[in-house]
């Protein structure tokens, strides 16, 4: 079985993460019910004739993918795998409203076509003329993780050498406002804004500095069983809890944060990081934490705003990512330098 390595990581988020070569130096606090991403200059990545039909998510996805390939010095990946929780919700809302607004008359095809969940992966392939394996996962907070797991499987089983994998979600307007409304009606609801973004990666079986040691997903677990799950996961990978230098947790301030506390207690002196207070919560927000881990391992530096608790160690070699959403869709990702 082949090892899996991260060759590049690119993120478009509510912070200046795409255009900057820095690492969250110019962090801006976010607030409100929703927060959009800081969009790149799409013209640098997408031809006008192609971009004219693209909604935000497709543009973010294609741009992030393009830069991830460039950074990894790769022109053609052996597979393109994307994850998106809400899919192309902008065009979905657009087509839905034109059905309702025009009473099913004079409807045009563009929004319908572009609303298909695999549009991002398809447009990346079309732009690259890439005929390779192409798949899209749409399973809420496991959307990106499912994509990454598929990539890992392709590499381990030697079905591919270099895989482009990413997570993308756009805010849209209507559904998200209803989701926010429901959330705010609950005092124990999500305490960060809803956000959007796209993080893309090139993962490869060719050895590089940062290894994706393993990952696992779990649809359902209690606060107790999640500890057992993690212990099992670490055991399988012959890693001790004390080996983990940094834990990056997907805290969003809701009533399910005790899951993170439960995991956190397994580690004696962890540097625990959080990130959703910087980019917002969305189904593929966790892809941002993989970008973060990649930068931390490369630069051996943790920007202050990321620190939730604990002291920063001088040498950072092993990072664990843990995310869940509403007590469901748990995922572990283990990285090593």
């Amino acid at each position: 079985m082949k090892n899996v390595y991260l060759h590049s990581a690119v993120s478009i988020s509510a912070q200046n993460t795409f255009d900057s070569d820095g690492f969250l130096e110019d962090m801006k606090p976010i607030s409100g019910s929703t927060v959009p991403a800081q969009y790149p200059n799409y013209k640098d990545f997408i031809a006008p004739m192609a971009s004219r039909r693209m909604a935000t998510g497709v543009k973010m996805g294609v741009s992030a993918a393009s830069k991830a390939l460039y950074n990894a010095q790769l022109t053609q990946p052996d597979a393109i795998i994307t994850g998106t929780g809400m899919g192309c919700i902008e065009d979905t809302e657009k087509f839905l409203n034109s059905i309702i607004g025009n009473a099913e008359e004079f409807l045009t095809p563009t929004a319908f076509i572009q609303s298909t969940h695999n549009t991002v992966g398809a447009q990346i392939a079309l732009g690259l003329k890439c005929k390779a394996y192409n798949n899209t996962y749409v399973h809420a907070a496991l959307s990106f993780e499912s994509a990454l797991l598929d990539a890992q499987l392709l590499l381990q089983q030697e079905e591919a050498k270099h895989v482009l994998v990413g997570g993308v979600d756009e805010l849209g307007t209507e559904i998200i406002s209803h989701v926010r409304h429901m959330e705010d009606a609950n005092t124990n609801g999500i305490q960060v804004p809803f956000g959007e973004g796209a993080s893309f990666f090139v993962v490869s079986s060719e050895a590089k500095a940062i290894q994706l040691v393993d990952m696992d997903i779990c649809s359902t677990a209690s606060e107790n069983t999640i500890q057992q799950k993690l212990n099992g996961f670490l055991n399988n990978n012959e890693v001790q809890a004390s080996d983990i230098d940094v834990l990056i947790a997907g805290r969003n301030g809701d009533v399910f944060d005790p899951y993170y506390d439960s995991i956190s207690t397994l580690f004696k002196n962890p540097t625990e990081l959080h990130y959703k207070h910087l980019i917002g919560e969305f189904y593929t927000a966790s892809s941002f934490s993989l970008w973060t881990a990649f930068r931390i391992l490369n630069r051996q530096h943790i920007p202050k705003p990321l620190i939730y608790k604990g002291e920063t160690k001088s040498k950072i070699s092993t990072i664990l990512l843990y995310n869940q959403f509403k007590g469901r869709d748990h995922s572990f990702i283990l990285l090593k330098r």
């Binding site: 899919g87 298909t116 969940h117 695999n118 992966g121 192409n134 798949n135 899209t136 996962y137 749409v138 399973h139 496991l142 499912s146 997903i217 779990c218 649809s219 359902t220 677990a221």
Partner: peptide, 11 residues
């Protein structure tokens, strides 16, 4: 089914 659960959407 509690462990590996996912959804695919490629039209």
């Amino acid at each position: 089914i509690t462990e590996f659960v996912t959804t695919i959407s490629t039209a």
